[in-house]
Design a protein around this nucleic acid. Sequence first.
DNA 1: TGCAAGAATAAGTATGTAGCTATATTGAGC
DNA 2: GCTCAATATAGCTACATACTTATTCTTGCA
Lengths: 105, 105
Amino acid sequence: MKLDPEQLERVAHLFRAFSEATRLAIIQELKSGELSVSEIVQRLTTSQANVSKQLKLLYEAGLVTRRKQSTQVLYQISDPMVFELCGLVCDKLNRDAQKPARLKF
Amino acid sequence: MKLDPEQLERVAHLFRAFSEATRLAIIQELKSGELSVSEIVQRLTTSQANVSKQLKLLYEAGLVTRRKQSTQVLYQISDPMVFELCGLVCDKLNRDAQKPARLKF
DNA sequence: TGCAAGAATAAGTATGTAGCTATATTGAGC
DNA sequence: GCTCAATATAGCTACATACTTATTCTTGCA
């Protein structure tokens, strides 16, 4: 079954959400559970504005859910496939690299 | 186990290879097996130069292998994880979309 | 109501890269 | 060596987007 160009574009779009280190860093932090925007900002080395922007992108891609709790907004991964994807990629990089310390998302 | 920024960058880089529809189209054509550059060009709607360029990117990402056969260069997918990844993403899109025709890479 | 904290948006810069056309490279056969 | 076919590369334009700083929006609380 071949995907048509529009479907391929949708697939590409989802992969694109995983194609920036900052978003992967956010995903990695959310692996342990729900976090507020400011908690994520504290754990990373980028601006609050950028974290908000990347979270929005992840949200629109359907990869995270959000809920408001008074003035905070809590985000969490919406689908375990996120970790499966990252795991497959890490496994491949480990296979290709042999020696170096294993990556494990 | 947390990946450091450099490792995240490597993961992101691999995902990026999957983040363009043209490259996914190439991967999709290679699903049925080894193809030459010109065979791929025939099956897609982009230029030979662009196919070569995207194949090079896939090659450098370690996703395809190549072998020369006289004047032709035959490419094929180097790792079944490529199809697993695409499958996971298609499954997710199908889950999110419910109704529409199922995507299957 | 006014203020402060948390989050989102706006505006701008810089960078990466998809795609094109044109050209160069490589290899087979004459 | 010359020519043709198959690939690869160069140079270019257009566009997307990551990131920053500054600002706005929202909510709880004095």
